[in-house]
């Protein structure tokens, strides 16, 4: 029934490295070996950039923050400090158990797990307001409440993903992944096995799939007299939320830097927190559904 599959690999294993991730192999444990091995670099970045003769230059270009040109002096100073500190903090969300597999490259170090806290702290400080708002209004039909929220979250994710479409291309994200542990596949035809697609393609398919269900009177009735199908929540709401979640996961794990830079982090966090509180309130998603963002979800919950 499930069109999509996620590969939940144990921390030692990994799927093919796609974007910004390194192989979790022993040879990669050593920072220097990573840096001095041009072969590895090329493997890692194939599909991202064309053949570059200078592997080290490639490293720098990829990992060092591009700075706005114009004011050269501060830029130089920044570079200097950056080189001195030799630390670039990657705020893209990475679960703590994966940190050990992310090797600091030239000019790059992943922060201690401070960023998780920071991600949580920049959520709208609306304490308890969202928790209250997700509760089923007295006497309301649970199905209708679910349906309204499905549409709302669909719209929210559409808006959020819309802001990073420039940055999430088949080139930057040739696979729909969230961290190097999770890849989400899409099945185009019933009965056929799901296939790997690029992140934008996956989101496009997902949104179309949702829209088709919203337009189906027998699933999401529009008429006042229209009834919801049997087991509406189990058959339609849960599968939809499980898949919509994956877009959040991809954004957090691979585009959070961009989101921060665009100053949309509050919006993203609020939306995701709302999504989590809603699924928690009605016990719609299992911890395993939260896969790559489980830690973040826990932080949000305990808040």
């Amino acid at each position: 029934m499930s069109f999509l599959q996620n590969f939940h690999l144990s921390p030692g294993q990994t799927i093919r490295s796609t974007r910004g991730f390194r192989w979790n192999t022993d040879s990669n444990k050593d920072v220097d070996s990573t840096r001095s091995s041009p072969k590895r670099s090329r493997d890692d970045r194939s599909g991202l950039v064309g053949t570059q003769p200078n592997a080290q230059n490639l490293d720098t270009q990829l990992w060092v923050t591009p700075t706005r040109s114009g004011n050269t002096l501060p830029e130089l100073q920044q570079r200097q400090t950056q080189r001195e500190a030799n630390v670039v903090t990657d705020f893209n969300y990475t679960p703590s158990h994966q940190k050990q597999f992310l090797q600091p490259t030239a000019g790059t170090a992943v922060s201690s797990h401070q960023d998780l806290k920071q991600i949580v702290e920049i959520t709208l400080g609306s304490e308890g307001v969202l928790n209250q708002a997700v509760k089923l209004p007295r006497g309301e039909d649970e199905n209708e409440w679910m349906a309204v929220h499905c549409v709302d979250f669909y719209n929210q994710i559409n808006m959020l993903y819309g802001t990073i479409t420039e940055f999430c291309s088949p080139q930057s994200c040739p696979r729909m992944i969230a961290t190097n542990e999770y890849e989400y596949l899409w099945s185009f035809h019933k009965g056929e096995s799901p296939v790997a697609v690029s992140a934008p393609k996956y989101v496009e398919c997902l949104m179309k799939w949702c829209q088709e269900q919203f337009d189906d009177e027998s699933i999401f009735p529009a008429k006042t007299s229209g009834q919801f199908p049997q087991k509406f929540i189990q058959r339609f709401v849960i599968p939809m939320l499980r898949r919509l979640f994956r877009v959040y996961a991809h954004i957090y794990c691979h585009h959070f830097n961009e989101v921060l830079e665009l100053n949309l982090q509050t919006v993203l966090n609020t939306s995701f927190r709302h999504f989590c509180l809603f699924s928690q309130e009605f016990e719609l998603l299992k911890p395993s559904d939260f896969g790559p963002l489980l830690e973040l979800v826990m932080e949000l919950r305990d808040r």
Partner: peptide
């Protein structure tokens, strides 16, 4: 401060971020 930290961004990030189209979707989103 999380916002003033150096971050890994794609090389062409700033060029794309300054595009009218990007600015527009960002404000529409907000």
């Amino acid at each position: 401060d999380i916002r003033s930290s150096p971050k890994k961004l794609p090389r062409d990030f700033h060029a794309k971020a300054e595009l009218h189209k990007t600015q527009r979707v960002v404000s529409v989103c907000q």
